[in-house]
Computed example of a mutant assay.
Amino acid sequence: MNQKKLPMEFYPLMEQLQAVDFVLVELTLYLDTHPNDQAAIQQFNEMAQYRQQVKHQVEQYYGPLQQFGNSYSGYPWNWSDSPWPWQL
């Protein structure tokens, strides 16, 4: 499989997405034990919305990040384009 060369702009976007994912995981763990914390729920929802924006931006330029309907495909089918997120 040929790994396509990515511009330097790709890496800060992926770093931003990974940071948002970390925040969402931490908030999920916190909310599992504090389900009535309205401020944390609000922060979680804001971060989830922000994640969708960053994910869309990454996918718009570099292709899908997730499969099984979580990401749209370009034409031609571009799921097999690399690098995949776990290859970074």
Rank of each mutant, 00 (worst) to 15 (best):
K4P: 02
L6H: 05
P7C: 11
P7S: 14
M8A: 15
E15V: 10
Q16E: 13
Q16H: 09
A19T: 11
F22D: 13
V23K: 09
V23S: 09
V25P: 13
E26Y: 10
L27T: 00
T28Q: 10
L29S: 15
L29A: 14
L29D: 15
Y30T: 05
Y30M: 10
L31I: 02
T33I: 15
T33P: 14
H34F: 15
H34D: 08
P35Y: 09
P35E: 12
Q38R: 13
Q38W: 11
I41A: 12
I41Q: 13
I41F: 13
I41N: 10
Q42P: 10
Q43W: 13
N45G: 12
N45L: 10
E46L: 12
M47T: 14
M47H: 11
Q49I: 08
Q49L: 11
Q52L: 11
Q52Y: 05
V54S: 02
V54Q: 00
K55R: 07
K55I: 05
K55T: 10
H56A: 15
Q57E: 08
E59A: 00
Q60F: 06
Y61H: 13
G63D: 00
P64D: 02
P64K: 00
P64G: 01
L65V: 02
Q66A: 01
N70V: 05
S71T: 01
S71P: 01
Y72E: 06
Y72S: 11
S73H: 02
G74L: 00
P76S: 07
W77E: 12
D81E: 06
D81N: 03
S82F: 14
S82I: 15
P83H: 07
W86D: 07
W86I: 03
W86T: 06
W86V: 03
W86F: 08
L88H: 05
L88C: 13
